[in-house]
């Protein structure tokens, strides 16, 4: 048989031990921040929680190609689970976080199994309707959730019985940083697994995946449930670190914002959330203080410009710049 003689194929190799160690450096740098910038812990832990939330969304939007406008529904389920448990006397942070993950995962399973048979506008509408439904339920079930006033009296016992949540937010800072690190590691393993690759396949060409024997509904539901559990964890962390749960945690606004944050950084790139979330929250802090109109205007213009001129978000821009530099040099 006549085949063109092939040069040796570059084997996609796992990073070496040293490279792995180097990847840990940024985490230690961030962990050391409170020493340099005391007083920023509360803002930083908000950023960590949102990065974690955006990572959960990236699994869907960036890898599985499922566009959702209702991801806050799952975040809020986690937040309310942790909050309501704490009000009723279950106050261990880790136990409530796990419970929040389970409740969010079950919510994701029920809604996901139903919704993910559809696609396009219908799927988009279903994700919205599901989140609006949860929002309205929380809004009306005032006895359980506090309704519009939010859930008051949320408090948690020390983490592992050792580290109490303090006013300066030190414990919350490290607690959410550790959680983020664990989730990041998990997501990184996941996207490199055969399962993660099959999600990319579904994103690229779902009809072809069916024609290689892939049960795509099942695969997408699993992705949705995992993403839901992580979003629920982010919600629980939010409840634990702020000791409050507001209706906002289920809102369309939050669903939209987290999508914008992810896209701003660059979806399907694992690190997009780490870039987009801090950029968004920093800009929000800066602009929204003066006048919300400025913030909306800036956000809107950036979104339009990004879609028209720079798909791939900030990381996409960086990738193109690197490629251009490489071409120059070679």
């Amino acid at each position: 048989m006549t085949t063109i003689p092939a040069p040796p194929v570059a084997v996609i190799a796992a990073p070496s031990g040293l490279a792995r160690l180097l990847q840990l450096v940024p985490w230690f740098v961030v962990a050391g921040l409170p020493l340099v910038l005391p007083g920023y812990e509360p803002l930083a832990m908000q950023v960590f929680v949102m990065i974690l939330f955006a990572l959960s969304l990236d699994l869907l939007v960036g890898y599985a190609g499922i566009v959702t406008l209702g991801h806050a529904g799952l975040f809020g389920m986690g937040a309310y689970t942790a909050g309501i448990l704490s009000v009723h006397g279950v106050t261990d942070p880790i136990v409530t976080a796990l419970a929040a993950m389970v409740v969010a995962a079950l919510t994701g399973l029920v809604f996901g199994a139903a919704m993910l048979r559809t696609k396009g506008l219908t799927l988009l509408m279903l994700t919205m309707a599901a989140a609006f439904l949860l929002y309205e339920i929380a809004n009306k079930a005032t006895g359980l959730t506090g309704g519009e006033d939010g859930l008051q009296g949320v408090s948690f016992t020390p983490v592992l019985g050792l580290f109490a949540f303090d006013f300066r937010g030190k414990t919350a800072f490290f607690y959410s940083l550790v959680a983020l690190f664990l989730v990041f590691t998990f997501v990184r393993i996941l996207i490199n697994s055969p399962f993660g690759w099959s999600l990319r396949g579904i994103r690229e060409n779902d009809a072809r995946m069916v024609a290689i024997g892939c049960p795509i509904l099942q695969r997408r539901v699993v992705a949705y449930v995992i993403s839901a559990a992580l979003a629920g964890l982010a919600g629980a962390l939010q409840a634990q670190t702020t000791q409050f749960v507001a209706l906002h945690s289920l809102s369309f606004e939050l669903s939209g914002n987290i999508l914008i944050m992810l896209i701003l950084g660059g979806s399907g790139r694992l690190y997009g959330a780490f870039v987009g979330v801090p950029a968004f929250m920093f800009a929000q802090d800066l602009l929204a203080k003066q006048d919300p109109a400025n913030w909306f205007l800036g956000q809107g213009i950036i979104l339009i410009a990004m879609v028209m001129l720079a798909p791939g978000g900030m990381l996409g821009i960086a990738e193109r710049a690197m490629a251009a530099i490489k071409r120059r040099l070679s």
Binding site: V9, V11, I12, A13, A14, I189, L190, N192, S193, P194, F195, G196, W197, S198, R200, G201, M209, I212, G213, C214, Q218, R219, V222
Partner: peptide, 25 residues
């Protein structure tokens, strides 16, 4: 390779594995 890997993974029943890198199979 990734194109072909997707098919091999489905055929050999490893495509729903979550915890081991694809290229360690």
């Amino acid at each position: 390779r990734e194109n072909v890997f997707l098919a091999v993974a489905e055929c050999e029943g490893i495509a729903s594995r979550l915890f081991r890198s694809a290229f360690h199979h």
